[in-house]
Write a protein that binds this DNA or RNA. Sequence first.
DNA 1: ACATGATGTAATATATTTTGTACATTGCCA
DNA 2: TGGCAATGTACAAAATATATTACATCATGT
Lengths: 73, 73
Amino acid sequence: MGDESVIRNSIRRLRFEHGEMTQQQLADAAGCTRQTIILLEQQRYAPSLTLAFRIARVFGKGIEEVFMFEESE
Amino acid sequence: MGDESVIRNSIRRLRFEHGEMTQQQLADAAGCTRQTIILLEQQRYAPSLTLAFRIARVFGKGIEEVFMFEESE
DNA sequence: ACATGATGTAATATATTTTGTACATTGCCA
DNA sequence: TGGCAATGTACAAAATATATTACATCATGT
């Protein structure tokens, strides 16, 4: 899928809205590494659908409230 | 993420509900290969979040209407 | 001044998703 | 009967996501 569609996310904001939750705490809650959270917050890549579900669930949100799909055109 | 959480999907059903849409047509509309659609319909793996968004969008649905997160416990 | 916790960087290794290609099967219809 | 469209299988290769480890920086509190 060599397209230019991009996925943004609000992880950083949500983390702070959840009592200054730490990257490490989120990683633990979502079952991934802190490194992964860092890269996601920096919008370096889109997560797997599985991880997206898990992260959204930590915040009690739906996937599309956390991750935004940005069309190519 | 070596866990046992599983993602199910309703692609096959949605395809038929959309005028017997062909695997190839869906693949084209979603910007992936027919092979990928086949494997997804067989629940062989979870798609990337990007592809999940694209497929859902082809059907005019939200991600969570097409892909279901199944908790480990 | 020092220790500590939170964040960031970098490099490499592993896992997973997606493609590409080639071929098999089945059902349909001229 | 023969051809074609739709689906499926198998396998290797490419692309991408995630983990691991180790170290850097900055702010805070003592």
